[in-house]
Design a protein around this nucleic acid. Sequence first.
DNA 1: ACTAGGAATACTGAATACAGAACCGCAAGC
DNA 2: GCTTGCGGTTCTGTATTCAGTATTCCTAGT
Lengths: 218, 218
Amino acid sequence: MPIERRALREQVRDELLARMRTGAVTPGEGINEVQLAAEIGVSRTPLREALIALETEGQIDSESGKGFRFAALSAREFEELAPVISALEGLAIELSPVPEMQKLGVRLAALASDFDSESAAHAMIMTRDDEWHGVMLGACPNERLLALIATVRQSFHRYESLLVPDEAIVSRVAAEHAAIARCLIDGDIPGAREALEVNWVNGAKRILMQSSSSYLTD
Amino acid sequence: MPIERRALREQVRDELLARMRTGAVTPGEGINEVQLAAEIGVSRTPLREALIALETEGQIDSESGKGFRFAALSAREFEELAPVISALEGLAIELSPVPEMQKLGVRLAALASDFDSESAAHAMIMTRDDEWHGVMLGACPNERLLALIATVRQSFHRYESLLVPDEAIVSRVAAEHAAIARCLIDGDIPGAREALEVNWVNGAKRILMQSSSSYLTD
DNA sequence: ACTAGGAATACTGAATACAGAACCGCAAGC
DNA sequence: GCTTGCGGTTCTGTATTCAGTATTCCTAGT
């Protein structure tokens, strides 16, 4: 078996992302490097390297002389992210060969109905949604685009994880997924893109509506 | 005057980008940290921090145990970047209020004709093009999108800087800029988006065609 | 002569140590 | 009473040091 040998900073990065997603840290909170490093069980160096990586991804802010802080959640940014992901994933669809997409469409439809029948916990929703979009992007040959999508999606996920208040959304997401899958099967790329856009923008709106008094700043 | 106090890693990052753009380093070249740190005049730590930041931006690769290396230039990636930028900037236009864009359109048209009349050196082309796109994005309220565009543009610029072989392209770029500006003035957003896409994709193709035996790998 | 093995070297990755800047509190002066 | 200057403390930002690992070169054996 290929034993995993990843750089420490990568593991720290994942740990930080996990903490941000689970709400173990409060958005906007300042970071004490020695303390956090001790908690995680590494020294300051790999922690700082992970922080810097996350900073360039937009998940963490820093100010010279004041150190790092977990990025605050703003309704504004959340709304900004939706059209960006939508556009990027739409482009990914457009760049994918149509026959491939039609094949994938079948799998996507199946996944969408699975999704529907499931009484889903929060974590499960996220995992399923990830899986679904992962399949959808499977035929896109543009590596760079996929990398971009991954990072933007991660930012978006943080909001979802912390704000999504109930499971009522599942059926609706499933419906939207099904719609997209249907378009893809038919080879109707513009239709799929439109459905995708609706999916994302509606998703963001929905979440914002339902977000009870929370971490949101503006 | 507000005296500049930037983190050292930011300055190092800029220096590295400058070296990559001017061709002072060869793409794909491995990086000796102590040597490079000495050259730049800082210690290894801020250099590594800059390297990690650039790595998450996709400008530098790293492999555990083998250290960092300047990202290789591939025709494939270059072609991949064009539609991404095109989609992102197109989205930015769409998100900008139409009246604002019409106002900006006038300035853009003026800049485009300036561009045309100028016998431009390479550096000047880049600066002008940057300026032009900067103005075009001036009315977009989506901060996150703008940040994304900036990083992707930087990747693209590296290719342009190293591959653009002659100045014949100027007039053509100017023509395309003018076309976009015209659409914007008319409030014809779809037209502008299409012109933009043509601008980017043609730009990439053009550069690739003319790139004499160079750093490109695949 | 060519290959395999091992030692030496060089470089990365991580930890620690140090210097310097930014906040907090308190006291003194206006 | 409010402001302003000073001192201490805490934390960041940078340098230095250490350990672990990959690579290379040399030697010995087939």
